[in-house]
Design a protein around this nucleic acid. Structure first.
Lengths: 219, 219
DNA sequence: ATATGTCTGTTGAAATTTCAACAAAAGGAG
DNA sequence: CTCCTTTTGTTGAAATTTCAACAGACATAT
């Protein structure tokens, strides 16, 4: 497990947990590591939520498919980020989304039951972990508020611009690369791909943005 | 404070806290009660997030206004529910939404700083409260997933039907009253009010639903 | 270099949503 | 009951989105 410490230290779940305690803690939480190939399903929709995932390497996406066959991307998962914690903490018996590897991934799974119930070894870190989880869940809530800011825009153009301005702010640069291709961006913004391409074309012609593939600049 | 105990007991923040400890706890958390008239602003957008609110009586709504003058309703707040906890836990210095009283309200405010930092009185309930908060934040996350299920639908009609089917499921009855008027429902579903009315008319004519004001039935 | 598969931009037609304006219905105050 | 305000339904025109289909660009493997 030692080789993953650099990543784990950056995971907010382990904030304020010292390295020397991490090994014991991982044992206590029954941590396991598993690898997935590109497009593999890490969590399937409808499965019970028993584990929290931590992305050790690679990237994944949180995907929702509705009965109309509409795909929407809820969020991306980058290295050192955790996922599934909301479903695990709420002890859902069927998670409403799928987590799909975007590229080859290594994922650490943590037994949520162990985490929620103070352990018999009197492991003293649970309280800190619960606190960290709470913080993370609060931050995820804010992410959803941001997402609402995007999807509540009525036009493709406003959705796109809201998203791009957020990315620019996040990167503190007017030029940045986004983690989506066109279809994925459309699925994230909840719009039609061809309409999105058209809108990008219009905004480029007007000199408001420039764009090549997934690299954008706001002019 | 005693007179609010019936409500507070139903608030998930105080799960597993015994009545006899509640008084001490409320003191420790610097709880204050305040009343608001209809349409009054309980939390204003842009304010720092220092308090968690608990709705003792009345109802309110979480509202987002974008720069286009578009209003969208994020959620409703009913009696015994808490609000603002995500902003408070994430220690935001500007909350991105407004909380507006929907009818005359009484609200209990809890100092979040007191809650997050273990108190000098060695109050033993903080751990339980943090745990309760974590649970609540996880549940709120799930609410957002549900909301995405609605707003990710592309047509007014699918948004409406997704919402109505959810409500029916939640009420375990095909006939139910929703907490929104037409304009509010439109702002919640992120659609045009007149288009929504039209769509309700069509679905009624087709015999799929029946509706009078804010009472709906799925046939 | 070629072949193959994926991604992106473009187009036009059909369907839908938005917008503005008004009429009808409901609710509250006096 | 009547007046007044708010809410809801309706309509048609304008704008936008969706859909399907295709062509060009790009990436990868052989």
């Amino acid at each position: 497990m030692k080789k993953y410490f650099d990543v784990l230290r950056r995971c907010s779940l382990f904030n304020h947990i010292e390295d020397e305690n991490l090994i014991a803690l991982l044992g206590c939480l029954d941590a396991k590591v598993e690898a997935f190939g590109k497009k593999y399903t890490i969590f399937a929709e409808g499965n019970p939520a028993k584990h929290i995932g931590i992305m050790l390497s690679g990237k994944a996406q949180v995907i929702r498919n509705d009965y109309n066959g509409n795909r929407s991307i809820v969020s991306g998962i980058e290295q050192a980020e955790m996922f599934g914690e909301a479903f695990a903490c709420a002890e859902l018996d069927a998670i409403p989304v799928a987590i799909i590897a975007n590229e080859p991934c290594e994922v650490m799974f943590i037994n949520c039951h162990r985490l929620m119930n103070s352990c018999t070894n009197a492991c003293s870190f649970h309280q800190q972990i619960i606190f960290n989880l709470m913080k993370e869940l609060a931050i995820k809530n804010l992410m959803f508020h941001q997402r609402i800011e995007i999807t509540s825009q009525r036009s493709t153009r406003d959705k796109l611009m809201t998203y791009l301005l957020m990315q620019a702010k996040k990167n503190r640069k007017s030029s940045f690369t986004i983690p989506f291709n066109r279809q994925e961006l459309a699925d994230y913004l909840e719009v039609d791909r061809s309409g999105l391409s058209t809108e990008i074309g219009k905004l480029t012609k007007k000199g408001i943005i420039s764009c090549s593939r997934n690299h954008f600049e706001i002019l």
